[in-house]
């Protein structure tokens, strides 16, 4: 499964994920307090310069940013008709600057660095029973389950066809029951092997084998 990360060597890529997220949080909050079009236009300019520094090709930047545009255009148009075009410009510029900055963080930060940041953020919650080291395991399991669900869906469909079941016979419920059993079984296997339950166990380095179709580290 592809991440939206774009590999390159740049000062923006080199910044720690936590710092980038903090800057995003601060800039995002500030943008909602500013009510001046020139200031927001300047902010948008700064974001564009950051894209250049980060060496993100415009094609990649565009592919990542175009999907967020339709809602933005609708809101700006509604704004223009309802309250005037100066507010529309303000809202559009603000959203564009914040969304582009957020996308830049996404494009320049590895998924693994983000996971590590989340683990670090959760560490203070350890006394409450939160186990930050399990975040990596659960993310890996999720990514592994995606093709498993597809496989199970094909099997359910094939079984229904073999029985000559009419089209439109409940498909979702059998699929859910099948995958629930599979996931519960996998969980019990993990417990039996002590994965993710030991005090110092590192989810990322644990190797789990549970048949070819339920290997949580399979295609990370």
């Amino acid at each position: 499964m592809l991440s939206l990360y774009h590999e390159a060597r740049s000062p923006v890529h080199a910044l720690p994920a936590g710092v980038k997220l903090l800057v995003l949080l601060a800039a995002g909050s500030a943008a909602f307090l500013v009510r001046s079009v020139p200031v927001l236009a300047a902010a948008l300019g700064v974001v564009v310069v950051l894209y250049v520094i980060a060496r993100v090709p415009w094609r990649v930047a565009l592919r990542q940013s175009v999907p967020v545009l339709p809602p933005l255009v609708v809101i700006a148009a509604a704004q223009g008709l309802l309250t005037g075009w100066s507010t529309a410009a303000l809202v559009a510029l603000r959203l564009l600057a914040v969304v582009l900055l957020a996308n830049l963080v996404t494009l320049t930060t590895r998924t693994s660095a983000m996971v590590a940041t989340i683990e670090a953020l959760l560490r203070p919650l350890r006394p409450l029973g939160v186990r930050p080291e399990r975040v990596g395991l659960v993310v890996a399991l999720t990514i592994r389950f995606i093709p498993v669900i597809k496989e199970q869906a094909d099997q359910v469909r094939a079984a229904q066809r073999a029985r000559g079941a009419r089209r439109g016979t409940g498909f979702l419920a059998p699929l859910l029951i099948k995958t629930l059993r599979l996931a519960a079984g996998l969980g019990e296997a993990l417990d039996a092997r002590g994965v993710g339950s030991g005090e110092r166990s590192q989810a990322g380095s644990a190797t789990v084998r549970h048949g070819p179709s339920a290997d949580p580290q399979g295609d990370r």
Partner: peptide, 28 residues
Amino acid sequence: LLFTVLVAIGLPVLPGGRGGIGVILGVT
């Protein structure tokens, strides 16, 4: 919540392959 975190850390898991913090900070 885990799914929302996957969106935030930049996996293209929303419809149309969207993802990233930008979507969360956006209108929807």
